[in-house]
């Protein structure tokens, strides 16, 4: 067969035909792989959840909750909570959070963690789900923060409410990965944001005992209740009784 000439009609027909066949082939492969891709992703997620929660027989999971948190960095982040139960009793939460919404951005693009917390908020374990950090440096986070032989860098069993989860260089309690302070800051921030997402859940709030704040006494005898909702209550109270407001 002779080669087709480059006429407008030939070019249009040739490209259209190739594009149509390509689209059909891709649709076929997509249909074939959609199931296995979803299964592989679900399996990976299930394995990660089991790895970060306490080893208990008969653990069941509630439907995953997706929470949208407005972060300090003024961005909205998506955090997914997988709550685990034994019977009726809640035993911990596996939290899927990424560096999206972090103030400390990582070195090599976004990364995603699955962090497990027990009922009181102690970190049980973590798994790095996705990362693109430098091998040998930032990528060491996969094993660095769970090294039980080195307490300074180990975060397992520690609670972000009682331990300062920032790197020691910034005055915190956790040793950063050698030569990867940027990655370490981003990692610890994700763990703290994951913790905060759990802490906002009603289940944990019930567990935390809140100390009553000291009652405010107005130094010049004004009724403290009147001060409420007027901005700086103390300034209001310092005005003499009967002064014009």
């Amino acid at each position: 067969m002779a080669k087709l000439q480059s006429s407008f009609k030939n070019m249009l027909l040739s490209l259209t035909l190739i594009a149509l066949v390509a689209a059909a082939a891709l649709a076929g492969v997509y249909t074939m792989t959609a199931g296995p891709i979803a299964n592989a992703s679900a399996k990976k997620q299930q394995e990660a959840i089991k790895q970060v929660l306490p080893e208990v027989e008969g653990m069941t999971f509630a439907k995953a909750d997706t929470v949208y948190v407005v972060e300090k960095s003024d961005t909205v982040s998506t955090i997914i909570l997988h709550k685990a139960y034994v019977g009726e009793e809640w035993i911990g939460t596996a939290v899927e959070a990424s560096t999206e919404g972090n103030m400390n951005m990582p070195f090599g693009g976004t990364f995603k963690l699955m962090v497990g917390f027990d009922q009181v908020g102690n970190v049980v374990n973590y798994v790095v789900l996705e990362q693109a950090e430098t091998p040998g440096l930032g990528a060491l986070m996969e094993s660095w923060f769970c090294n039980k032989e080195k307490d300074g860098q180990n975060i397992l069993g520690k609670n972000p409410a009682t331990t300062n989860f920032t790197v020691s260089k910034d005055g915190g309690d956790v040793d950063a990965i050698t030569a990867s302070t940027i990655t370490s800051r981003a990692f610890l921030e994700v763990v703290v944001r994951a913790y905060n997402a759990v802490a906002q859940q009603p289940m944990l709030i019930e567990k935390v005992e809140v100390e009553p704040a000291e009652a405010f006494v107005c130094p010049n005898g004004n009724d403290p209740l009147e001060c409420a909702g007027r901005g700086c209550a103390e300034q209001y109270c310092l005005k003499q009784k009967g002064d014009q407001q």
Binding site: K3, L17, A22
Partner: peptide, 23 residues
């Protein structure tokens, strides 16, 4: 090769290659 006119060979090749890469 005989069905692809010379002037559009590069876009045609790229579509074929991209299809296989996506697969």
């Amino acid at each position: 090769k005989n069905l692809i006119p010379d002037k559009v060979r590069i876009p045609a090749f790229i579509v074929v290659i991209a299809t296989f890469v996506t697969m």
